[in-house]
Design a protein around this nucleic acid. Structure first.
Lengths: 200, 200, 200, 200
DNA sequence: AATGAATGAGATTTCATTCAT
DNA sequence: CATGAATGAAATCTCATTCAT
């Protein structure tokens, strides 16, 4: 009769947190129920099966939880930017900066995304977001005439790679900011319209 | 009379081929000795252990075999290009075009690289190659002043993503060529020097 | 309400018992998880891995269990004897008599000890015990001037051999007692001081 | 048409030698055909199966070979002794001294004997030899009235243990001789007839 | 809600042996 | 004689999941 809270009883949240930690530390492949149960301080894996329909369910919950955390960090920064180009830059820089705040979540998410492949809503969602962003920017004339889908695919994957490398050995905030700026510059150049007096 | 090449001895090559097919179809995680043996028409997994020192050995042989095949396709195209920019374009276009010729090898290699992570020589080799290419191009004045390492990391990962997506559902040769050109354009723009009459 | 003892939890004890039986019947080399699981009436070997960290863990538990059982039989008999010589005799006779009570445990223990070699605490413990017993007895003048270490090594091994042979085809209690007495006599003579009016 | 030599073609001898080395170094349990073939410089285990009917056959050949070598060392020393007591002493001392000459053979033989158990002719042969020696000595009045079988069993096993320990870490010849003398003393005392002015 | 025991499948690896060449 | 490939069984161990309590 009682309403379920979001993570349903605290145990769910505890397990999700443990799973994220294990994935971040040991990688997706080693993230067995045994390891997660141990990390969560549970004496049996049965508890996990009790709370989650299966492994996919648990992993989906992990993705959702991570997106909640990372969204809270990134969204304000993106929203603060005005214009398509500035938003692209803000997204990239925020994502790189995120590594300094939540390295475990970032590393886990990227590992999850890598192994979930194209089945994941998270992947496809972000991909569609970028594609749409590029298209509307092109319509507004602030982006060049490139293929929006190919660019979205390539640039999000490149972003992930840079972020994953940074998360594996977190550099100081200054270096992190520099890398974010560099990458954003790269992407802004890649997507810029042909400059009026541009090189032939 | 002819000397034995690396993966020869018949069975070894057959097993490597089977492993590549399995990885391409079912993914790295599902590529167990059982599956590979079945794909190769072997009656037991013992045969695989007989020919390879262990799973790592087999996977290394797969990478070597794939690099042989892909190198034979890509290298001439890259060598034919003159100048740093043209070679970057040639590399990207050749890599995308490769999907039409060897989709299974491409898909398998990307999966292998993803799961081998930064331990792989193949990954690090290509990364170093790109980084060096960018640096010498910058010295020659044909690339901009971006961070070579970040760019190499991001662009190779982006290339992999585009290629993997194409390999998952191989499009026709025309479409493939178009995607290759688009991606190469993107990368050429991203790495171009500030144009004389550049954007404000 | 009662605290758990070492091998308790029901299944653990059952598996240990089954392992002891298998080792006694088929020998250490044939004591695979499969055989033990079958003997214990388990449907899979996974259950054994669930209860024990590995084969070494299971075997250690077997040794501990056997030492518990045999200690309960032998210790009172040894403690009842007064003096170094009488205690040596008591140890030997009790060990041989033990065969009549717990043939499987005795046979299993000896096989375990043989294959564990000098790594086993059980072996080294008994060896040190004998050696120390000989030394203090020599200081008290009730044993001769022999090398305590060599004697301990030789006599414990000899005892094991007699016990193992007896356990392989358990004789009646009378015969068993006779063998025990014979062996104790042998050892008492071997360790006796040079008799005053001894033979030349 | 040509008569077979003892070891039939040299290969047999080579394999037997390799097997003895492996058993001495790695132990009976680890002495697989693979390891033996590698030790012998053979490229395949098939060769072993070709020359020997099975594993038992190979092991039996090892025992025979070792007994040949050790017999050549021990037999003259035993034969040189006169009388039952002196021969017992000579056997023990020769066996311990043998460790200094052929440590690998000694260690391998003991491991073989341990694992062959009571099926082995070598074991039973030596046991019968000792038993018979004790009986005839008792008839001659130079040994006491102990149970010949129990004594034979115990003393041969004790001898093996001392020898095995010495073989595991071969001491210098002086120490080896001392241990041999000590052990022989122990056995001579154990088997001596009740002295005229016997124990108090 | 929670526990811990149980299951059955599947993983890699090693083994002794056989067979065609 | 010799090789190297092939086999099938068996080994230990881990996995996700289910179930009775």
């Amino acid at each position: 009769m009682r309403a379920r809270t979001f993570t349903e009883s605290g145990r769910r949240a505890q397990i999700v947190r443990a799973a994220i930690e294990v994935i971040a530390e040991a990688g997706y492949a080693k993230a067995s129920f045994s390891r997660i149960a141990k990390q969560a301080g549970l004496s049996s894996t049965g508890m996990i099966s009790y709370h989650f329909a299966g492994k996919d369910d648990l992993l989906a919950a992990c993705v959702a939880e991570i997106e909640l955390v990372t969204g809270a960090f990134m969204q304000p920064r993106i929203d603060a930017a005005v214009g398509h180009v500035a938003q692209l830059r803000a997204y990239v820089e925020a994502n790189v900066a995120l590594v300094g705040e939540h390295p475990a979540e970032v590393q886990a998410l990227i590992d999850l995304v890598k192994n979930a492949g194209s089945r994941s809503d998270a992947v496809n969602g972000r991909l569609a977001l970028f594609e749409e962003h590029f298209r509307t920017g092109q319509a507004a004339g602030v982006f060049g005439a490139f293929d929006a889908r190919t660019a979205a695919l390539s640039l999000t994957a490149g972003l992930d790679a840079v972020v994953a490398t940074a998360a594996a050995a977190v550099p100081g905030p200054t270096e992190l900011a520099r890398v974010g700026r560099e990458l954003a510059d790269l992407y802004v150049r890649a997507t810029a319209p042909e400059s009026a007096g541009g090189s032939a």
